[in-house]
Design a protein around this nucleic acid. Structure first.
Length: 135
RNA sequence: CAGCCGGACCGGACGGUCGCUCGCCUCGUCUUCGGAUGAGGUGGGAGGAAAGUCCGAACUCCGCAGAGCAGUGUGCCGGAUAACGUCCGGGAGGGUGGGUUCAAAGCCACUCGACGGAAAGUGCCACAGAAAACAUACCGCCCCGCAAGGGGUAAGGGUGAAAAGGUGCGGUAAGAGCGCACCGCCGCCGCAGCAAUGCGGCGGGCAGGGCAAACCCCACACGGAGCAAGACCAAAUAGGGAGGGACCCGGGUUCGCCUGGGACACGUGCCGACUCGGCGCGUCACCACCUCCGGGUAGGUCGCUUGAGCCCCGCAGCAAUGCGUGGCCUAGAGGAAUGACCGUCCUGCCGGGAGACCGGCAGACAGAAUUCGGCUUACAGGUCCGGCUGCCAU
RNA sequence: GUCCCCGUCGUCUAGCCCGGCCUAGGACAUCGCCCUUUCACGGCGGUAACACGGGUUCAAAUCCCGUCGGGGACG
C-alpha cells in the first residue's frame, strides 16, 4: 500500500505510470467493429462479453464498446460506457500485440462493484494476450 | 404555527488525485505549406424537462406565372407574437355549493371547457314506446249515445337519452298560451361596448328535437421534404466519356470512317545465312496499357453555435408583452466528451444511546446531437410570494 | 437524430371506414362431461380479451385528444 494512494482500492499512482486512454487507441470505425464481430473470437465474463481479433498491421491494443438500446435508457448506457472506459484505462497493458477488442456489457454491469469490473477487464486482457501469442 | 390551493425559483455544497473533450498560449517533430502530431500551461464542459416528437418558426434543398380543385388543420370576441393548435384579457355556456322560493329560474361564490353553422343539403337516432321528426293518440279525462261507436282534449299515467317552453293564477264539459303575471324564446328599435355581447323598450302566444370530435357548409391558414437537409474535398474497386497508342500522301465522306499507295513495327511462311537481309501473307482497333475528364462510395471538412440570446434597472400596459439605458458570451461531440475513486459537510430513514453523539443506508426524474417559441409527460427534497381554513398569543 | 405504422382471449385473427343488433365472433390451445376396454378422432359445455386515462354522444372496441408499449424506414 503506497502512501500516495490512501484509499487503497486501486493503486493508480502506486505503479508510478501515468495511465491514459486517448482516442488513438479507441476503436471508432464501423468497419473495424464489423470485422471483429464477423471474424473475431469471444471471451465471456460475468458482466460482459469480449470480442477480439488480431490485426495484421499496426501495433498495440485498440478497444471499443457496444452498448445497445436493450440495455436501458441513455443514462444507463452512458454509465456503462463510462465505467468500462475507466476500467480499461486503469487496466490497459502498456505493451501488447496488435489486437482489436470490442466489449459488450450486460445489464449487471450497472450495479456491479467497480473493483470486480476492473478485475474482469484485467483478466480478459490476459486471456487475449495468451490466445494471440499462441498463434 | 400547521394544512390546502395557485404562481415563481432551486435541483445537494466544498475540496483532492487520475482521466476525456473543446478553445487559447508557448515549445518541439513531420510537411505535398492546406495542415497533421506530441509535450506543458490556462480556461470552458448537460436539463427543467436535454424526454415524447404533439404544434409553430428560422435555416437548407427541390418545385413553382396566377388562380382554383383536392387534402390537412384551426374555429366566441379582442389583444400579444416572427409564428402557433401557444399565451393574456373579456364574453356567452356547463358543473358544484350557498341563498330566495311551494318548487325552479333569475342572484352570489368557486370551478371547468375544441365555444362557427342544424331555416343549404344528405345521413343516423338501437331497445322500449301509440308515436322519434311526417307529427300522432296506448292507458286516460270530458261530451253525445241503451250499446256498438262518434267527437273533443293533451292536464295526468306509462316508455325513453330525448315526446311541440317552465311555474302559478284564471278559465273550461274536460282541457289547451285559450287568457294573464314572472322567467325562457323569436323579431324590431334604442343605449353601452372596438367586438363577442349585455341592458332597456315595443311587438309576437311560440315558429320549434339531437348528433357536425357523422358526411358536409362557411371563414381563415398551409407547396414538398427535412441538418441522415445541404455544400465542398475525395482513396481502393467496378463502371462511363475523351484522347494517346494508330505514321505519311491522294481520293471520297453521313466527320463515325471507307478506299488506294508507301514507310515503320509485330507475328508467321519460304530462301540465303555471321549478329542479319530479301520476298510473300496477316494485323480484327475489341481487350489490355497510358493520360485526362465527369459522376460518386468509404472517409474527411463545413453547416455548428452570437441568437426572435441571457441578466439588472426604468418606462408603457389590467396582463400576455413591448420599448430603452447598461452589462455578459454561456457545451459543441460525432461508435458520440461532461467521468472514476476518495474526504468533509447538508437532508431523510433505520439501529444503538439518558444525552452530546456513533454506525449503516439512501439523495429524485433523467443525458445535449441544427437552433429557437410553446404544449404534454416524469420528478426525491427544498426556498420565496399571494389567497383560504384551523389553532395559539396579543 | 428525423419520419411512419400498429396495439382485441394464452396465440393468430374478425368487428373499427359508416357508433347501438357486442353480454365482442371464429380457429388453435386449455378445462370438464359424453362416446371408447383405453388413447386418438368426434360431439356438448365452460374459462378467457377491446393497452391506459380523459373528452364528444342518450350510448364508444369503433369518433377526437393525450400517455404507455411494440415494430419499421432513412447514412
Amino acid at each position: 500500500m503506497s502512501a500516495s494512494a490512501p484509499n487503497g482500492s486501486s493503486d493508480v499512482s502506486g505503479s508510478g505510470r501515468r495511465v491514459s486512454f486517448p482516442r488513438s487507441v479507441r476503436l471508432l470505425r464501423h468497419a473495424d467493429f464489423e470485422r471483429v464481430y464477423k471474424q473475431g473470437r469471444r471471451h465471456f465474463a460475468a458482466h460482459m462479453t469480449v470480442f477480439y481479433l488480431a490485426r495484421a498491421e499496426g501495433e498495440g491494443l485498440r478497444v471499443g464498446f457496444t452498448v445497445g438500446r436493450v440495455l436501458g435508457g441513455a443514462v444507463q448506457r452512458n454509465r456503462m460506457k463510462r465505467r468500462l472506459r475507466e476500467a480499461v484505462r486503469l487496466r490497459r497493458p502498456a505493451e501488447s500485440a496488435a489486437v482489436d477488442v470490442v466489449i459488450n456489457p450486460k445489464k449487471s454491469l450497472l450495479t456491479a462493484d467497480f473493483a470486480d469490473v476492473e478485475r474482469e477487464v484485467s483478466r480478459a486482457f490476459e486471456v487475449i494476450q495468451k490466445s494471440v501469442e499462441k498463434r
